[in-house]
């Protein structure tokens, strides 16, 4: 096709939106709302995943030692623990450090400790980090066997429950997003399809006058892309504002909950919404057209 025809067809796609303002508005609104819902779920599950990852990284086993172990014994123990399977890190905390940490945590109530300070009742210990919650029990029992270890603290039931919960959250978030994705595709393509159906007569007349399929189809295709872009733009904008609001509130109300920073997450999510919106818009408007083109 010639350049002037392309110019005409691009112009027609804008005209098409103008001539069918109500249909176009309905399509954009539907797209914006369903893309926004999808976007919110994606952002929410990314954050849940992040929280889970942070929690997982904090999983640790405490191994308390007898007081009378010589320095060399402590070094040997450290080597022994690090060489265990699934162990990702070992850190030695001597009892003085432990006490000052405790003081820090207690803050203004640290006075309570003054009485015991002279004879520090805390023990030297190892903080052992493990790959994943499910290995905690195994590693803990192995550490407990080692010579010089007085007691191992690992809150096993909490850990295994936590790992189950995290896995469940991850799987169901993925599942919901898949479902929502499919629903979004269906809703949007259906709206766009309705808009195309209402213009069956127009397509029929064009074909009778001698328009080629491409000539009829391009404006619909471009129109779908434009509507998809508009829908994704609205959804991304609202998502962006909503996340700002969310961050501001989380920092105030739940300061200890880890959340993802806005970027680059929202950039990626928005890009996804744009790709999805334009793809469904374009295909949703040009595929159902095929049937009418057989004139």
């Amino acid at each position: 096709m010639r350049i002037r025809t392309w110019t005409y067809l691009v112009g027609q796609s804008f005209q098409g939106i103008r001539r069918h303002v109500h249909m176009s508005l309905a399509s954009v609104t539907t797209m914006a709302v369903s893309l926004l819902v999808l976007g919110i779920f994606v952002v929410a599950s990314l954050n849940l995943s992040y929280v889970a990852a942070v929690i997982e990284s904090q999983i640790e086993i405490r191994a308390y030692l007898y007081d009378d172990i010589p320095a060399q014994g402590i070094l040997d123990l450290e080597v022994a623990i690090s060489s265990l399977e699934y162990v990702t890190g070992v850190e030695y905390v001597d009892k003085d450090t432990a006490l000052s940490k405790l003081k820090e945590q207690l803050g203004p109530q640290a006075d309570l400790l003054e009485a015991v300070e002279e004879m520090n009742p805390l023990r030297n210990s190892f903080v052992v980090k493990v790959e994943a919650p499910e290995f905690v029990a195994l590693v803990a029992s192995q550490v407990e066997e080692l010579q010089g270890v007085a007691k191992v603290d690992h809150r096993q039931d909490l850990m295994s429950r936590l790992s189950a919960v995290i896995r469940a959250i991850r799987v169901s978030a993925l599942f919901i997003i898949l479902l929502l994705g499919v629903a979004t595709i269906l809703i949007i393509s259906n709206t766009v399809r309705l808009a195309v159906l209402s213009r069956q007569r127009e397509v029929y007349i064009m074909k009778l006058v001698g328009a080629t399929d491409a000539f009829v189809r391009w404006p619909f295709f471009l129109e779908g892309i434009l509507l998809g872009l508009a829908g994704a733009a609205v959804a991304s904008f609202v998502l962006d504002r909503a996340y700002d609001w969310f961050l501001a509130n989380v920092y105030v109300m739940l300061p200890f909950v880890p959340v993802l920073t806005k970027q680059p997450m929202l950039q990626v999510v928005s890009l996804g919404l744009f790709v999805l919106g334009t793809a469904i818009g374009a295909l949703g408007s040009s595929i159902p057209l095929k049937r009418f083109l057989r004139v």
Partner: peptide, 22 residues
Amino acid sequence: KLLEDRTVFENVAFALRVTEST
């Protein structure tokens, strides 16, 4: 069988658009 949303001029011109007239 006119295109309801286009002017008289555009309806007639349409037959020329499809043939890619200048």
